[in-house]
Design a protein around this nucleic acid. Structure first.
Lengths: 216, 216
DNA sequence: AATAAATCGGGTTAAAACACCGTTTTTTTA
DNA sequence: TAAAAAAACGGTGTTTTAACCCGATTTATT
């Protein structure tokens, strides 16, 4: 019997998932959590589950952090990502964090069953979503994953700056808010233009929103 | 027995919902659809359901359109919105389109049961989400719902312009793309500043993204 | 015919974008 | 451990774009 943990803040979805998974031959839901933090606490007093079905967008501790924690603390546990996010950045980040598969929340139940079977039997579930990214990675390792790569290279100040970018404040006002010289803010902007391969403030704002640095 | 239809493109969620609803005393799922269009076609050959559980973000025909269609074609059918969107615009738009209740996808199952009971028994489900908007509507009818109101007042050219706003093109380049004088583009921008109560291009971009005029 | 709406013009000022440059601190690595 | 490299921070100035002001003309609408 393969034990499964669900980590997702959508309780309604989770409730449905429990029923579905328990109806699958050989799988059993042994744990549920609203977010990564709750999972790390609950798992302390239990045996680690074989598979964790992990959402990305969650409060307190999101899927990115949680997958890293699992990789470091529960090496036997395999992560299957279940997310709404279909963008390269999310998929790549989770795969780099050790996820064994990635399926979308609007998948058909059969896909879902296939994924669980595959991860149990072979350790991985390689669907089109994942294989496309992997192929792209092999062929374009240098240029690939620009968003995810850039995201990891951001300093704390740059992240804070990107949040201010998505407001209607001028750079001078942002400098005041961050207690920095307007010139430093200028440098932040120019560096981010290069890092993120954009040319305008709107480009920065779009990046920040797309990568959930700000939530609108 | 109260008949329920599910209109949601997330098949996994829907599968879970069917099980949950059928487990509720007195409710039965009689129809499922991936989007509004499919619902309108399926419902032709059947008796109209008592309650439609309706998502907003769907392909082909979204929840906004579908709720209007239901109001016009199935006056006996009551719509309960089940969405991830928590913003004023979405809630208000759906209520104006005749929805009887609005719950979030991350609600607990009990909330979900309460909503169905309430709509069956009283015709409405007024939770905090809805009552807050209603109260606000009563007290600030003039200024209220600025996003939704503004959204409806946009011309086709203004909508197109907002899409271009979320790129890195200059206004002059946007003028070329739209085959208009740069001065006209200036006027569009200035009008939108007033309509949408923003002061900068970043403000326009955020509005466009928040209201799904552009998908990033 | 009157009114509203959409389109276009010429300007000014503030902000954004870009250049070239130097200092200090931290990190890397030879 | 000292030298080199990278990152963080700051300064002066120019060019381009954004934002705002005054307005006019044309095109629909009523």
């Amino acid at each position: 019997m393969t034990s499964v943990a669900l980590v997702d803040d959508h309780e309604l979805l989770r409730t449905g998932l429990v029923a579905i998974i328990n109806s699958f031959e050989g799988f059993k839901v042994v744990m549920e959590a609203n977010n990564g933090k709750q999972f790390t606490e609950k798992v302390k007093s239990k045996t680690a589950p074989d598979i964790v079905l992990l959402d990305i967008t969650m409060p307190v501790m999101d899927g990115y952090e949680t997958s890293i924690w699992i990789k470091n603390n529960l090496p036997q546990t395999k992560v299957l990502v279940l997310s709404m996010l279909e963008n390269d950045t999310a998929i790549i980040r989770m795969l780099k964090n050790g996820a064994r598969g990635y399926i979308l929340k609007d998948s058909k139940p059969k896909v879902f069953k296939d994924a669980l079977d595959s991860i149990r039997d072979s350790g991985y579930f390689i669907n089109e979503l994942v294989s496309n990214k992997l192929m792209h990675y092999i062929n374009h390792e240098d240029v690939f994953d620009s968003d995810a790569f850039a995201l990891n290279s951001l300093s704390e100040n740059e992240t804070t700056f990107l949040k201010w970018i998505c407001t209607e404040k001028t750079y001078k006002e942002i400098a005041d808010e961050m207690c920095l010289s307007p010139r430093t803010i200028d440098t932040y902007r120019d560096n981010l233009f290069k890092k993120l391969d954009v040319k305008t403030r709107v480009g920065l704002a779009i990046f920040a929103i797309k990568n959930s640095i700000v939530n609108i």
